[in-house]
Design a protein around this nucleic acid. Structure first.
Length: 374
DNA sequence: TTCTAAATAT
DNA sequence: AATATTTAGA
């Protein structure tokens, strides 16, 4: 009897200990896991309480202790539904304070529990983006995280987005408008002050638009050229070549898509599209631009009137005919749209190759920029 | 309102 | 990675 009692007591102590430990850990995520914290706290208290009571009783001479202690499990279960949870609970908390009922509905157990959990961590960091060195986009980054979060919470997204529109708008606006001059600030940096609110709820908002400033586009073209043309270049490669900080594959991908689209069949012109075969040259910013395959030409030759294009020859373009000559300006100066992305001024053409960031490789001496505005 | 760039989904 | 669809700014 006594043995049993001791044993149980020990178990109880251990359990409490474990709980305390857990409690400490969760404390760190207080904000993220308020409910979790509360649960553990409650459990801990209850446990302690019971423990002391049991002890007392036992000391007094009520051997029911064994019974009590044994009931430990069940009691705790009340607080800690050990079965599933995990991810869902976490996510719940991450998302927003309440909505406990939501937990009920989501049974989609994600295999990646852990990652979900971990994902919450970055939320605490000011600079969650591991890759961000200079680039610290305030609103955007966090938005990312949540967006990529499993779909588990879609149901709430709407609500959230509604909410966020208000809150995050502030954070995003600046980012968007900041995309003026380019490359340097690959991703609109701006205020770093992310208010708690933003941090906490904001999120579902759509990622701030990336502005493809002329310069950025120039880099894009440059990369494209180095990679052998728009049809062989892959977004990832392009991004790497561009070497622009906050740039993501998706952004590049999107841009590339657009580029290809525009680039592909230009022939709008004349009434019936008899055969829109590729028009050979186009005017870009007042310049006749030959169709790439060699964007090089575009870049090198264009503006700077005859800059010797010392382009690297190594490039091999897709041989076959298929290649729909991407000839279009696929976008002319376009004075209207991206008002944000002004840039005009900063275009330090004049051949100063300041911008040659192109990693090693042949270093195209592309002098100026024929690239249209983006 | 339309058009299009960019984001996001498939 | 490519393509389709959606969103949102002008």
């Amino acid at each position: 009897m006594m043995m049993e009692y001791r044993e149980n007591m020990q178990k109880c102590r251990d359990y409490i200990k474990a709980l305390e430990e857990e409690h400490r850990k969760i404390l760190v995520f207080k904000r993220e896991l308020p409910l979790c914290l509360e649960l553990v706290t409650q459990a801990l208290e209850a446990c302690k309480q019971q423990f002391s009571r049991t002890t007392t009783e036992c000391l007094i001479g009520h051997p029911e202790c064994s019974e009590q202690t044994t009931s430990n499990g069940p009691i705790l279960e009340e607080f800690i539904p050990i079965k599933k949870r995990g991810s869902s609970t976490d996510e719940d908390d991450e998302l927003e304070s309440q909505k406990p009922n939501a937990t009920e509905t989501q049974n989609n157990e994600k295999p990646a529990k852990k990652s979900d959990w971990l994902r919450s961590v970055p939320l605490w960091n000011q600079n969650p983006d591991p890759t961000a060195n200079e680039d610290s986009r305030p609103g955007t980054v966090s938005a990312f995280q949540v967006t990529k979060n499993g779909g588990a919470f879609h149901p709430f997204q709407k609500e959230l987005s509604a909410l966020n529109k208000a809150t995050s708008a502030a954070a995003e606006a600046p980012a968007a408008s900041a995309c003026s001059t380019a490359e340097t600030e690959a991703a609109a940096g701006g205020g770093s002050g992310v208010s708690k609110k933003d941090e906490k709820e904001g999120q579902s908002q759509r990622k701030a638009r990336r502005c493809w400033s002329p310069d950025l586009h120039r880099r894009f073209l440059n990369a494209l050229q180095q990679l052998g043309g728009p049809h062989v270049a892959t977004p990832k490669q392009i991004r790497e070549l561009m070497n622009v900080h906050g740039l993501t594959n998706d952004e590049v991908k999107s841009h590339l898509q657009k580029y290809r689209l525009h680039t592909r069949r230009p022939a709008p012109a004349v009434h019936n599209n008899a055969i829109p075969r590729a028009p050979q040259f186009v005017v870009v910013g007042g310049i006749w631009v030959p169709p790439p395959p060699d964007l090089a030409a575009v870049e090198a030759g264009a503006t700077s009137g005859g800059a010797a294009k010392v382009e690297s020859p190594t490039r091999i373009y897709a041989p076959v005919a298929a290649q729909p000559p991407p000839s279009q300006p696929w976008q002319q100066q376009k004075q209207s749209s991206p008002s944000n992305c002004e840039e005009r001024g900063s275009h330090s053409h004049g051949g100063g190759g300041v911008r040659s960031n192109s990693p090693a490789t042949s270093s195209s001496t592309h002098t100026s920029t024929a690239s249209p505005a983006f």
